[in-house]
């Protein structure tokens, strides 16, 4: 890849937005690679986490926003915990996802935003996750109807999978969703899709 670099491209508004959303200064990163060294998913990423930071440092925002990495990131925060420059990389990844959704970019891995949306819908509905419905909706939505079905009996007998959702505390999450909606109304600059990935998108 060839990149014609100039003063305008360094720290564009978009990078400043990412910095504002994450509360981090991308220039703090000195590219030691400790984040990539410890990342449990780095092997499946197209850009290792340090390179996502590098792209932001050079103003190469498209490379960062269209990467699989930001969607594969499990927010386990190993990188954040170990970063010698105390950069909260998980927060930067989160900010990148926000921004990608806000811009309406298509995730290179379609299932992940779909999973996140489904997950949040269930939280809104039940106040907590209802695994059976989540699996069902996810499998139907991704057209992999029988994905992981063989694992269901064991999970069921171990009490990890319930057939009916819990009705306890159903409405507890709703004020939070309302609060986000209100906040968006007052501050339209905020990414409207914030709620979509506000939850922890653990796969």
């Amino acid at each position: 890849m060839k990149y014609v670099l100039d003063q305008e491209k360094i720290r564009p508004d978009l990078v400043r937005t990412i910095e504002r959303l994450s509360g981090e200064d991308v220039r703090q990163c000195y590219q030691c690679g400790k984040c990539s060294a410890g990342c449990p998913i780095a092997a499946d990423m197209d850009l290792p986490p340090n390179q996502v930071m590098r792209m932001l440092q050079l103003g190469l925002t498209d490379e960062a926003l269209d990467s699989r990495t930001i969607w594969l990131c499990a927010s386990c925060e190993t990188c954040t915990t170990r970063c010698p420059r105390e950069v909260d990389l998980a927060a930067v990844m989160d900010a990148l996802r926000h921004e990608a959704l806000r811009q309406g970019r298509k995730s290179p891995i379609r299932q992940i935003p779909f999973f996140n949306r489904t997950f949040l819908r269930l939280i809104k509905k039940y106040g907590r996750v209802f695994e059976m419905e989540l699996i069902g909706r996810f499998n139907v939505g991704t057209l992999h109807f029988f994905k992981d079905v063989t694992k269901a009996p064991r999970l069921f007998f171990r009490g990890r999978l319930k057939l009916w959702p819990s009705f306890k505390g159903r409405k507890t999450a709703r004020p939070a969703f309302q609060a986000v909606k209100n906040a968006q109304r007052h501050e339209p600059a905020e990414p409207p899709a914030a709620d979509e990935s506000a939850g922890n998108p653990t796969p």
Partner: peptide, 12 residues
Amino acid sequence: ADTLSGTQIEIA
């Protein structure tokens, strides 16, 4: 070059 991002860099 910037080997950290794997890009060829050109600056005027």
